[in-house]
């Protein structure tokens, strides 16, 4: 039972990180119809900010807000420089643009920072663990769970109570009509990117604190997981992204924890098989966006 509870905590922590990542993709997709594959590079930028702060002797407490700021800023710049010129193009054009942005950034990191992994100093407190009710729980697991909850609550309040949040929801519902109502497209889209940058930053801090290093290609795996989670939850739906993230985290951890040893090698295919099964039953995802017109063919 203990083992099960502990693995559940692990699943919540991993699922929470995936949820934040998927949410970052979904926020932009719901408004622009763009799946931003350069989302992972926003994480890398946050990671490098942490690394440079460590080198400059800035304490982790101050490095964290700086890293969040860096990834938000990078997200807004990304939109301004790369995505605004192709905003009205087809989905494929935007998708390819995002791949290009990701690759260009990776090459820049490799050439101007280092091809090698760089160590990031993580305070020992975060690497430690505490005892709760007889269970040893890593502090970074707790951190992941707490920051996921905080981010989800904040985002929910922002979207339901704030003027910009409501404008963004309106834009997600029907961009053309929202613009007719006087909502500025540029502001809403820049806002969406800033939020996705913030979410990428938080996820990056959780991710980097686990691996204590940052490298130019670091963003690939998380954005892939985020993409799977976002599809699983229902593209364009924010609640769906969160649900998809948690479901993916639970699938991965429970398979790694409870699959018999001889089947462990096939953990990933089995995990993705479950994802496919879910999509066969719910082709539009767990909680599809109301505006998504996709149909089962």
């Amino acid at each position: 039972m203990d083992l099960f509870l502990q693995q559940t905590v692990n699943a919540f922590a991993l699922g929470g990180t995936y949820a934040l990542l998927a949410l970052g993709l979904a926020v932009v997709f719901s408004i622009m119809g763009l799946i931003n594959f350069a989302h992972g590079e926003l994480m890398t930028i946050a990671g490098y900010t942490l690394m440079y702060c460590g080198l400059a002797g800035i304490s982790f407490v101050f490095a964290v807000p700086l890293a969040l700021l860096a990834s938000m800023l990078a997200a807004v710049l990304m939109e301004r420089i790369a995505f605004r010129p192709v905003r009205n193009s087809s989905g494929a054009t935007m998708l390819v643009t995002s791949f290009a942005v990701a690759m260009i950034l990776q090459v820049l990191f490799q050439n101007f920072i280092s091809v090698r992994s760089q160590a990031v100093n993580i305070p020992d407190v975060i690497s430690g663990s505490i005892l709760i009710g007889g269970m040893v729980i890593g502090t970074n697991k707790l951190l992941a769970i707490v920051s996921t909850i905080v981010m989800l609550v904040l985002l929910d309040r922002f979207l339901s109570k704030q003027k910009y949040g409501i404008a963004m929801r309106a834009a997600a519902e029907d961009f053309a009509v929202a613009r007719l109502m006087g909502i500025r497209a540029n502001t809403v889209i820049a806002g969406a990117f800033a939020i996705s940058g913030l979410l990428a930053g938080v996820a990056a801090i959780l991710w980097v604190s686990q691996r204590a290093s940052v490298d130019p290609l670091m963003g690939f795996t998380p954005v892939l997981k985020a993409f799977i989670a976002a599809i699983l939850g229902g593209l364009g739906s924010l609640r769906g992204a969160v649900a998809g993230g948690f479901l993916l985290g639970f699938i991965e951890i429970y398979l790694a924890a409870f699959l018999p040893a001889e089947l462990q090698e096939f953990r990933d295919p089995i995990g993705l098989g479950i994802v496919v099964l879910v999509l066969v039953m719910r082709p539009n995802g767990l909680l599809p966006a109301a505006s998504l017109k996709a149909e089962k063919v």
Binding site: P222, E252, A256, A257
Partner: peptide
Amino acid sequence: DTYTLGQQDFSAIAT
């Protein structure tokens, strides 16, 4: 135990 190259999360194995 086995893991996948590039696996980020080892908590299930560690537990």
